[in-house]
Measured scan of single mutants.
Amino acid sequence: MQIFVKTLTGKTITLEVEPSDTIENVKAKIQDKEGIPPDQQRLIFNGKQLEDGRTLSDYNIQKDSTLHLVLR
């Protein structure tokens, strides 16, 4: 499925993911596309910070959902 990740600069990254993917996996995909190390990434969905060990389906993230990427 496709999800979107919006950065603070207003750029939107499109990712191909599975609901069973962990947040860690998603961060690795963002690193592949953008070169941002996962330990600098914080992903936010519906105002909640997403934890590495959880999956997209844990957070009820579905296709065409938009996550927000904050760098630390």
Rank of each mutant, 00 (worst) to 15 (best):
F45M: 15
F4P: 03
R72H: 06
K63V: 05
Q41V: 13
R72N: 09
P38S: 14
L67H: 01
D32T: 08
K6H: 07
L56H: 00
Y59V: 15
K33Q: 10
T7A: 03
T66Q: 07
Q2W: 12
K48L: 04
M1Q: 04
K48Q: 07
R42S: 15
I23G: 15
L56Y: 01
I36R: 04
V70S: 03
S57V: 03
K48H: 07
V17T: 13
E16W: 06
D32L: 11
T14V: 12
D58N: 08
D64A: 15
T66M: 06
I30G: 01
I3M: 15
M1K: 14
P19G: 12
L15T: 01
Q40L: 12
I44S: 02
L67W: 01
L43G: 00
G35Y: 02
T14N: 07
T22G: 02
Q40N: 08
L67I: 03
H68M: 03
P19D: 12
D58I: 15
M1E: 07
D32N: 10
Q49A: 11
V26A: 13
V5E: 00
L67D: 01
S65A: 08
Q41D: 01
T66P: 13
T55R: 11
E16H: 13
L8K: 09
N46Y: 07
Q31E: 14
D32M: 12
G47E: 06
K6V: 04
S20Q: 15
K6N: 08
I36T: 06
K29V: 12
Q2A: 11
S20G: 04
T66D: 12
Q40M: 09
K27N: 02
G47D: 03
D39E: 03
F45A: 11
E24Q: 02
K6L: 07
E34I: 03
E24T: 11
T9Q: 11
R72K: 12
Q31F: 11
P19K: 04
P19T: 11
E34H: 09
L71W: 10
G35K: 05
L15P: 00
P38G: 15
F45T: 07
K11N: 12
D52K: 10
Q31H: 07
A28R: 11
D52L: 07
R72G: 15
T66K: 08
L43N: 00
K33N: 12
A28W: 10
T22Y: 05
N60P: 02
S65N: 05
G47T: 13
Q62D: 09
V26R: 00
V17K: 00
I36F: 06
E51M: 15
F45I: 13
K11L: 11
D64L: 14
L56Q: 00
I3S: 00
E51S: 02
D39P: 05
I30M: 14
L43F: 05
L56N: 01
L67V: 04
I44T: 04
P38I: 13
P38D: 03
Q31G: 10
D64N: 03
K29E: 06
D39M: 10
T14E: 06
P38E: 10
I61A: 07
D39K: 13
P38K: 12
P19A: 12
V17Q: 11
A28T: 12
K27D: 00
I23D: 01
N25K: 05
K11H: 11
G35H: 14
T12E: 10
V70W: 03
G10S: 07
A28F: 13
L8P: 15
G10P: 04
D39T: 05
E34T: 06
K27P: 00
M1W: 13
S20T: 12
T7S: 07
M1A: 07
Q41F: 06
Q40P: 02
T7F: 15
L43I: 09
E18K: 15
T12H: 13
Q2I: 07
L67P: 01
Y59A: 07
H68I: 15
V70F: 14
P37E: 10
D52I: 09
I13W: 02
T55G: 04
Q31T: 06
T22M: 03
F45V: 09
G35Q: 08
I3W: 00
V26Y: 00
K27M: 14
E24F: 08
T9I: 05
V26S: 04
P37S: 14
L43A: 01
R42M: 11
A28M: 05
S57H: 08
A28V: 07
T55F: 11
L8R: 10
L50A: 14
L50K: 00
Q31R: 13
Q2R: 14
E51H: 05
P19Q: 13
P19E: 06
D58T: 15
I13P: 00
P37M: 08
L15K: 00
D52N: 03
D21N: 15
P19Y: 05
S65W: 11
T12S: 03
K48F: 14
R54M: 11
D21Y: 04
E16M: 14
D21V: 09
K48E: 15
S65G: 15
E18N: 15
R42D: 12
S65V: 04
I23Y: 05
K6A: 08
L15A: 06
L56S: 01
K63R: 09
I36W: 08
Y59Q: 02
Q41W: 11
K6E: 06
G53D: 11
S65F: 15
L56F: 13
I61V: 15
Q2G: 05
I61W: 01
T9R: 05
T66L: 07
Q2D: 04
V26W: 01
V5Y: 02
I44P: 00
D52Q: 12
I13M: 12
K27G: 01
I61H: 00
K63Q: 11
K48S: 08
K11R: 02
L50D: 00
E18Y: 04
G53Y: 08
P38A: 09
I23T: 11
R42A: 11
D32H: 03
L67K: 01
T12N: 08
S57R: 14
L50Q: 01
E18M: 08
I23V: 14
K63E: 10
